[in-house]
């Protein structure tokens, strides 16, 4: 379970998140909606533990452990994984090295290749990670690395952005595999928190709850499909009005 209570987060001395509460139970996937600049990415970065995102109040519990003050890498090793919207290119570090790093002691050439084929990136293994990758290739590469890492909690920042329509189904399949969607909910352990602007991903991935985040606050939650329909029809203004 992921349990966030009263979380406040600062970036460069400016408070971005003002008291966030959220609970994701084992096996559940939640969706985060909201306009640009509303704090969605900040929330994911703070859960992951990036130092620039300073937690100034509240707490984060993950699988019963208080991780509020834990460094980024320890959180990753505890089972939190994140797909980045715009990951950096790391010159000289090959894609295969990143996949192997995620697999750790389970790493083998066969496993690395298997994951690459799954993400349609077999020809990318010897390329420098993210260097010269297209938007869609970056997304598939991020999914591939997460599959190697096999996290208990997956944080996805706009997994469908920059992906053409022919590849979005592939991304959806990879997310479903990552979140163990083929397992019954009762036995499923993996959790997901996904940011989406377009909602396309909901055509491929089932999610239990949706949140609307505006100006650093969650102003509403409910069925993600209903929320998406409302946003599409009336924009975020309606969400703000409902919240009042």
């Amino acid at each position: 379970m992921l349990e966030i209570k009263g979380l406040t987060v600062e970036v460069e001395d400016t408070e971005i998140l003002h008291g966030i509460d959220m609970t994701i139970n084992p096996g559940e996937t939640h969706i985060l909606f909201g306009p640009n600049g509303g704090g969605k990415t900040t929330l994911l970065m703070a859960i992951m533990g990036f130092p620039r995102y300073k937690i100034t109040g509240g707490s984060i519990f993950f699988r019963g452990n208080d991780i509020t003050r834990l460094p980024l890498d320890e959180r990753a090793r505890m089972g939190i994984g994140m797909a980045f919207q715009r990951p950096p290119a790391v010159r000289g570090v090959k894609t295969r090295d990143m996949v192997a790093a995620g697999l750790k002691e389970r790493a083998s050439e066969e496993k690395v290749r298997h994951l690459a084929e799954k993400a349609d990136l077999a020809d990318f293994l010897d390329r420098e990670i993210n260097y010269g990758f297209s938007g869609g290739e970056i997304k598939r590469s991020e999914m591939m690395q997460l599959l190697a890492q096999n996290p208990r909690l997956t944080l996805l920042d706009e997994p469908e952005s920059g992906v053409d329509l022919t590849n979005i189904a592939l991304i959806g399949n990879l997310i479903n595999e990552l979140l163990h969607k083929n397992c019954p909910i009762r036995t499923r352990k993996c959790m997901g928190l996904i940011i989406t602007h377009t909602g396309y991903i909901l055509n491929y991935v089932n999610a239990r709850s949706g949140y609307v985040m505006i100006s650093g606050r969650i102003i509403g939650c409910g069925d993600p499909h209903e929320i998406l329909a409302t946003i599409k029809e009336r924009g975020y203004a309606k969400c703000i009005k409902c919240a009042k």
Binding site: D73, A76, M98, G102
Partner: peptide, 18 residues
Amino acid sequence: VEYLMARGLTQNEATATI
């Protein structure tokens, strides 16, 4: 460095890899 740490490498391992 942080990108590699988000994959579970320690800071030293991430730096060495880079």
